[in-house]
C-alpha cells in the first residue's frame, strides 16, 4: 500500500514514557521553571535579610560590626563558630547554581525552538521591559555578585583588604573619590531590581498561584518589593559617597 511521508519534514517525536519518576518531572520545561521560582524565592529572602542587615550601618560602626560578628557566632556554643553562616552560604550557592542551570537550559531550549528569526522586528505587546531583559540582566547581576563578593566579602578588590572591619570596608569602598564604584553599584542594584520585578511575578505564576483577578496585586507587590530592595541597597553606598556616613 503506498504511503506518503508524514507532513512534517522531520521525524515525529515519540511520546515520552509517562512512567518517568517525580525527579524527572523537574527536568521538564515547567519543572525547570519551578526550580527557578523556588531558588529565586530563596535568593529574594536572602536579599531582604541582607538589605535589613545593611541598613544597620546607619546605627553606627558598633552596631554594624557587632551584627557582622553575630552572623558568624550565632548559635554558639551549641554549634561551632560560623556554622550558620556556612550553612547559609551552601544553601545560597546551591540555589544560585540551580537557578543558573535552569536558566541556561531553558535559554538553550528557547534558542533551539526558533531556528529562523523574524525579519520584521517582533513587537513586544506586553511592554514590560523587565521581562525582556531577564537573561542579559541575569548575566550582569551574576557578574556584579562576583565583584561584590570579591569586594566586600573576601576583600580582594577592597581598598582595605580582606582583614579590615566591615564598617571600614564599606566606608573605604564608597569613598567620594571612588564615585565610579558607587555608580557601578547603583546601576547593578537597579538591574537586580528589574530582574526581581519580573522574577517575583514570574515565580507566583510558575508556582501556580497566578489568577486574572490577582495579577494587578501581584504585579504591584513585585514592584514594591523590588523598589524597596533597590532603595535599601542603594542607600548605603550613596550615603557614604555623599558623606553622610563616614
Amino acid at each position: 500500500m503506498s504511503r506518503s511521508t508524514p507532513v512534517a519534514t522531520r521525524p515525529r517525536p515519540k511520546t515520552p514514557s509517562p512512567a518517568a519518576g517525580p525527579l524527572k518531572r523537574y527536568r521538564s520545561s515547567v519543572g525547570k521553571k519551578a526550580v527557578m521560582a523556588v531558588t529565586g524565592a530563596i535568593l529574594v529572602l536572602f536579599l531582604i535579610a541582607h538589605a535589613i542587615g545593611n541598613l544597620k550601618v546607619f546605627l553606627g560602626r558598633e552596631d554594624f560590626d557587632h551584627y557582622s560578628h553575630w552572623l558568624r557566632s550565632v548559635g554558639e556554643p551549641a554549634i561551632p563558630h560560623r556554622t550558620f553562616l556556612t550553612a547559609m552560604e551552601v544553601v545560597l550557592t546551591v540555589a544560585v547554581l540551580l537557578h543558573i542551570w535552569a536558566a541556561i537550559s531553558l535559554a538553550r531550549q528557547a534558542r533551539q525552538a526558533r531556528p529562523v528569526r523574524y525579519a520584521a522586528r517582533p513587537k513586544a505587546h506586553e511592554n514590560r521591559y523587565a521581562t525582556h531583559v531577564m537573561r542579559y540582566g541575569g548575566i550582569v547581576v551574576l557578574l556584579f555578585v562576583i565583584w561584590h563578593l570579591l569586594d566586600l566579602t573576601f576583600g580582594a578588590v577592597n581598598p582595605k583588604g580582606g582583614d579590615a572591619q566591615p564598617y571600614d570596608k564599606v566606608i573605604a569602598d564608597f569613598d567620594p573619590s571612588r564615585w565610579y564604584i558607587t555608580l557601578f553599584y547603583v546601576v547593578a542594584v537597579i538591574l537586580v531590581g528589574l530582574h526581581l520585578r519580573h522574577g517575583l511575578f514570574s515565580a507566583v505564576q510558575t508556582l501556580g498561584w497566578g489568577r486574572q483577578r490577582r495579577y494587578p496585586a501581584v504585579r504591584l507587590a513585585a514592584d514594591v518589593v523590588a523598589a524597596l530592595l533597590v532603595i535599601g541597597f542603594v542607600s548605603v553606598p550613596v550615603m557614604v559617597t555623599i558623606g553622610v556616613l563616614n
Binding site: M1, S2, S4
Partner: peptide, 9 residues
C-alpha cells in the same frame, strides 16, 4: 504536500 497519489483500501 507532496502531490503523491495514494491508494487506500
Amino acid at each position: 504536500i507532496t502531490g503523491e497519489i495514494e491508494t487506500h483500501l
